[in-house]
């Protein structure tokens, strides 16, 4: 549905803007999380077809009807695993933030100047 994919793109833009302009590491990771949700919305909305139902065979949807009445199952499957991986990646980023705070005693990326060009 176009509305949801536009919403997803706006969330991607907001998350990217937050990642680029904030100074606090935790806020950067929050921006990453928002961007993640936006990407999931876009991918699922690409597989949706108006008026169709979930691809699960039961009394309401017989196996013969599935090609004409079910939505695309592949984007759902991809997003399903991507959400779990996204949580693991977020936890990894947060553990990097904790480690940086332990070493440098700051979360402000302007104070972490070893790799500054």
């Amino acid at each position: 549905m176009t509305l949801v994919s536009i919403l997803g793109f706006v969330l991607i833009a907001v998350g990217l803007w937050g990642m680029l302009t904030r100074r606090n590491l935790i806020k950067i990771i929050v921006g990453f999380s928002i961007m993640d949700t936006g990407v999931h919305l876009v991918i699922v909305s690409l597989g949706f077809i108006k008026g169709r139902t979930a691809p699960i065979i039961n009394k309401a949807l017989s196996a013969g009807d599935a090609p004409s009445r079910a939505v695309d199952p592949i984007p759902s499957a991809l997003v399903l695993t991507a959400i779990v991986i996204g949580l693991a990646v977020t936890a990894l980023l947060l553990s990097f933030a904790v480690r940086i705070y332990r070493e440098k005693r700051t979360l402000n990326i302007d104070d972490i100047s070893e790799l500054k060009w």
Binding site: P55, I56, I57, N58, A63, A66, P67, A70, P73, I74, S76, A77, L80
Partner: peptide, 15 residues
């Protein structure tokens, strides 16, 4: 997948 998935694999949930 939606046409042959059920007869191939027998799972009702195609996802």
């Amino acid at each position: 997948i939606t046409a042959d998935g059920v007869t191939d694999l027998g799972a009702a949930n195609l996802v």
